[in-house]
């Protein structure tokens, strides 16, 4: 009965949702068309399932390597950020040491600076280390995050002291308490932050574009840019490529949707 009165709400939401989904529908549809079908007006609604668009992506770019590079970059960045940020976040939240607040604010000031300010010097460092066009070059600067430290510190501050106090009286050192008491408690926060990091890392474009110019060493996002340069008007191939590059992260999102939403909601509420 109640839902009967809600139809205007559904109508508005459905129109909005269509605006969100139709571009993806068009992407999938085009990726299955032949080139001539893609240039037909009015559009062909039933494509002839031209799967060769997908194989052409594999042929014209080292897609598999790029996929691997993106996975490695994402995994290393995420694990490193989880480790380094949670270690520091715990210390900033729970331990007392001289200069704690000054250091914390200094590190946090990084958040106010546009990424472009880091880019040239980071590039020089990676170049100096002879790591251009390598995997470590891709993930090295992204292993550290001021944002993650801030977010996890908030999380640790919200956890109760009692358990920690008990462990402390038992004589456990802070690192031990962190590892075996606090980390398990912080699991929801870590997971939410981890999923956010995976997403951002997967989407990153500017750094990979700058640091790895060899197609074999590129990430998928930079690879898409290269694919675009090669098949400027062959939209069926371009759509197949963009679909292949995006699908893995959409699967991750569907599986870990709750954590991702929580992570974003948490950043919003601070």
């Amino acid at each position: 009965m109640r839902n009967g009165r809600l139809w205007p709400v559904h109508l508005v939401l459905a129109v909005g949702a269509a605006a969100m989904v139709v571009p993806f529908f068009w992407e999938v549809l085009t990726s299955l068309k032949t080139f001539t079908e893609s240039t037909r007006v009015p559009p062909t609604w039933i494509p002839s399932f031209e799967w060769s668009n997908f194989t052409r992506v594999l042929d014209s770019t080292p897609f598999v390597q790029q996929f691997g590079n993106t996975v490695v970059m994402t995994v290393v960045r995420t694990l490193a950020q989880l480790l380094f940020c949670s270690l520091a976040a715990y210390a900033f939240a729970r331990l007392r040491f001289p200069g704690r607040n000054v250091i914390f604010v200094l590190l946090l000031s990084v958040l106010m600076v546009p990424d472009q300010l880091f880019l040239i010097p980071q590039y020089q460092i990676i170049k100096g280390l002879d790591l251009l066009n390598t995997l470590p070059g891709l993930f090295l600067p992204g292993m550290f995050s001021a944002f993650g430290t801030f977010m996890l510190r908030q999380f640790f501050m919200g956890l109760p002291d009692e358990i920690e106090e008990a462990a402390r009286l038992d004589g456990a050192n802070p690192l031990r308490i962190f590892w075996s008491v606090m980390l398990p408690l912080a699991r929801p926060g870590l997971l939410a932050f981890g999923v956010l990091t995976v997403l951002w890392s997967w989407k990153d474009l500017m750094w990979p574009l700058v640091v790895n110019t060899d197609p074999e060493k590129m990430t998928l996002s930079a690879g898409l840019a290269a694919l675009h340069g090669e098949h400027v008007t062959e939209y069926p191939v371009l759509m197949a490529g963009s679909l292949m590059a995006t699908l893995p992260i959409i699967v991750v999102f569907v599986v870990l949707q709750r954590q991702l939403i929580q992570g974003i909601a948490f950043t919003g509420s601070k």
Partner: peptide, 20 residues
């Protein structure tokens, strides 16, 4: 322990973000 635990992050952010 405090300094030890913030060391890796501070070093990383220092080298790759603050110094740049």
């Amino acid at each position: 322990w405090g300094y030890l635990m913030i060391a890796p992050l501070t070093l990383g952010l220092g080298v790759f973000y603050l110094w740049p």
